[in-house]
């Protein structure tokens, strides 16, 4: 565990908490893409199935459980509790165009052709593009609420920090994972336009 990895995890956790609190406090999920949230639930479920097969550390297990619980909690709030506020007219990104290529790619390019490894690979590929329905929704409606922007900034920063962690690990431990690195870079690049707007508006805006 290095500082970049820890900051990345904190940023990820922060993003999820911001989203849950926003929905809970405003009793509304307006502006949030349910499709992205469903994709994230698929990502965590596929990746964290190893919770039952390989124990790493208490930190690792607890974080996995928190991400799973928060993700399903968000889905519950969006699709059941505050269903009336869900903005589905603007949430129209076709997620099969993301899921099917990721399934195919994970079957073709993986570290080992075994069920859990393929699920892990699939989750890495899908995570890299899972935010697209949300970014599409923001561009469609013109602007995101500031709290939604903070959520997106924290969520985008998480993978960017992981890239720094991989650079560090490459030099310090001679360790690298090509699949995670390439997907992580794709994921971070997708946020670049948003990062630019967030930072310039944050500094010069109002």
């Amino acid at each position: 565990m290095n500082v970049f990895r820890l900051l990345g995890d904190i940023s990820h956790l922060l993003a999820i908490i911001i989203l849950l609190l926003k929905i809970w406090k405003t009793r509304s999920c307006a502006g949030i893409s349910g499709r992205s949230q469903v994709l994230f639930a698929v990502v965590y479920t596929a990746r964290y199935l190893d919770l039952f097969t390989s124990y790493i550390s208490a930190y690792n297990s607890i974080m996995k459980l928190v991400f799973l619980a928060a993700s399903y909690g968000t889905i519950y709030l969006m699709f059941i509790k505050f269903k009336a506020s869900y903005d589905h007219n603007h949430d129209t990104f076709r997620i099969e165009f993301l899921i099917l290529p990721c399934v195919l790619l994970s079957l073709l390019i993986n570290h080992e052709f075994s069920p859990l490894e393929i699920l892990w690979t699939f989750s890495i590929y899908l995570e890299s593009v899972a935010i697209l329905p949300q970014l599409f929704m923001v561009s469609k409606t013109g602007e995101a609420e500031s709290i939604t922007s903070h959520y997106l900034f924290a969520l985008g920063s998480y993978r960017a920090l992981y890239i720094l962690n991989w650079i560090y690990r490459y030099y310090a431990e001679s360790h690298y994972d090509v699949i995670a690195i390439v997907a992580g870079i794709v994921q971070t690049v997708l946020y670049c336009d948003f990062f630019y707007l967030y930072i310039t508006k944050g500094i010069y805006g109002q």
């Binding site: 990820h12 390989s54 790493i56 550390s57 974080m63 996995k64 570290h111 992981y162 962690n165 431990e173």
Partner: peptide
């Protein structure tokens, strides 16, 4: 094949 040190990442 992924090692335990890779599996540590979330």
């Amino acid at each position: 094949k992924r090692t335990k040190s890779t599996k540590d990442e979330l």
